[in-house]
Design a protein around this nucleic acid. Structure first.
Lengths: 207, 207, 207, 207
DNA sequence: CGGTAAGCGAGACGGTACGTCAGGTCTTGGG
DNA sequence: CCCAAGACCTGACGTACCGTCTCGCTTACCG
């Protein structure tokens, strides 16, 4: 064996033999899963259905995803992509509002419907619920943490602010609204809502 | 036919003939449903299981509940009872905090687990989700509305407060925390969280 | 409860409640099973196929038959009916030949093909093999026993004849011929074969 | 190129280039196949199982055997070896009995169990059934043909004996007994059975 | 010695059927 | 008309093997 080949082998750290995973299949499965949830709801989301629509065998799905909930999370994640970055427009308050609006708008339409389905379906399966929380919700929620801290530092926000509580107050209602169909998550509502939380409920005596 | 029976019939104003619904069976079914969800999770909650545990026939369950989601909601509602009343201690702010704490504490333990299950399972079934929202969530949320309005009137709260947005900000995070297992819904957290929302995020210039 | 009703209940020996087995379904299943084996061979004989062709649910099949082999045996038995009776034409030797011919002819055509399939398939499943032997083969073989004994009594057959060995010698080659496709089981062959066994192989000195 | 190599090449008639079949692998596969059938029955005999036990890849098995039935036949044949020769002790009748006994004894134990499995399994696959018949059964059966003809010539056997029918009568019951588990194929039974067939069923008038 | 042609292991893939579970409907007999 | 029991058809579950298909590697010949 040549030195080069040996080096490669070592670099690959002894790559497993056998045929490699077919990425086209992987994508077809994720896409089919997303489409089914989106079109017909979580109840209609079955492994058999995904197999049929994607043209994959059931075995292949079970080989790569431990449960249909796990597949749902992956399908969702692969469709929405990265969560972007917080902004810095100079005004922390405006940045917070923009973040709330952005998240809300992101969940209107297909994405939101699928998210609600997963959120709910996840109750069947602890592990998935956790994955979803860690891979989707928390990263998104954390977007705001830096902004909040910047606001505290700059004096725009209360110095004694409980950042975690604030994050929950800003984000949870968006998901809840979606889940419980309490109304649309449009920009108008998001603006109003964010404003209410940021300003607080109490009245301030005129200085 | 005996006179007594005849009298009853007349009193019922021509009540339908045939055997009347057996209330013991009804209660056995609801209890079995609640217990199964509580003990083994929503996934293990099946009509067959409920029939077996309660000693009822499947037919009987289907006769009275249109779907298993509907049964779940009924089982939950019959277990938790009424939602109580808002209080009036003089301080609107203290009243709001007390309400948030009370709701949170209410959802710790069994009740919370079942609620989370239903909340999730409801995504399978629009009708149930709506029922649950209307029979459970909204009544509980509305508890606070009067308090908020009292606060506006008294000047403790901002005169321009968006009451709906405020209600959502105060309640949604409780459910979300439960659903996403973000942490315990204990009194300490509820206090901190309610305080954050009520006071708002912004700093106020010293007057 | 009236005495009459009580009497009936006792007579029924506490018959199980609930819907009774649907005999039309039972027959449809057996017929479908037979037809599939006959038309496409044992390999094509699947529970799913039988369910589909008969219009029954798989569950129903599994409720009543422990394995597909058991179903095959039942299907076969229900199609061929009773095995008839031995004859008595005066000549024991003619009676024996007639029996061999009759069994052979019986196994030509559909029935034989299905039988061969079951005989073979039965190797997968001990219990079925036993059932088939006891319900089909042995009864048929025993048809000849009385004839043989009659022959011994009348002096037509050897007084020291081993009846069991004789029965096997007369019957086994029929099945083997079928199973191994050694040639047709027609009347001509059966005649020749029966004659050979009955007369034996050895030469007899002219008396 | 050396003359010797050239000679070999010519002898091989232009043997194909490339790596040659690995005989150790071939033997490992046959052995694994036999062992699995023997240990766990035909039902447990799967290509995947053979591959796993033998350490071979499935591809390799499919490259050399067209079906699992073909593999089973090969495995069986390679395990039992040649079928030996008929004997000539002077008495044709004793020779025939000896042959029946020998075949019977040969099929007791492992070998018989595997044979029964193949016999049965072969019903799935016409080709295999034929191969098995031609490679195993017929050669063994033909062992007796010469003996029978010798007997006819010597006058020990009937001059008008139907040799084919006699062969079937002598051999088929052995296999049938094995297949249908009608009883052991031991020497005692074989003796009794062979004797019955050879002497025939009919009584002979004292000369 | 270097190229080309197998053989070989591992293992992914699209399928078919398995045997089970639950869903929702029905039939039966009894209250 | 209610009820328990339980048979029934349907559809999805998750698993086992099927037979095919890459892969990367190992022989072995042949120019």
């Amino acid at each position: 064996m040549s030195d080069v080949a040996e080096l490669e082998r070592v670099a690959d750290q002894g790559r497993a033999p056998g045929r490699r995973r077919d990425d086209a299949t992987r994508r077809a499965i994720l896409r089919a899963a997303f489409d089914i949830i989106e079109a017909d709801g979580y109840r209609a989301f079955t492994i058999e259905g995904v197999a049929a629509r994607s043209g994959a065998g059931k075995t292949t799905i079970y080989r790569w995803w431990p449960s249909k909930e796990a597949l749902a999370v992956d399908a969702f994640m692969s469709e929405i992509g990265e969560c972007g970055q917080g902004q810095d427009t100079g005004s922390v308050i405006e940045d917070l509002k923009a973040t709330v609006v952005r998240i809300s708008e992101n969940l209107e339409g297909k994405t939101g419907r699928v998210l609600a389905a997963i959120l709910g379906g996840g109750q069947n399966d602890l592990e998935t619920s956790i994955q979803f929380r860690d891979r989707f919700m928390i990263p998104r929620r954390e977007l705001g943490r830096a902004t909040l801290q910047r606001g505290i530092a700059s004096g725009e926000l209360r110095p004694d602010l409980d950042v975690d509580a604030a994050l929950e107050a800003l984000i949870a209602p968006i998901y809840m609204r979606l889940l419980m169909r309490l109304g649309p998550c449009d920009a108008a509502w998001a603006q109003r809502f964010a404003d209410t939380v940021i300003r607080g409920l109490v009245a301030h005596k005129p200085s």
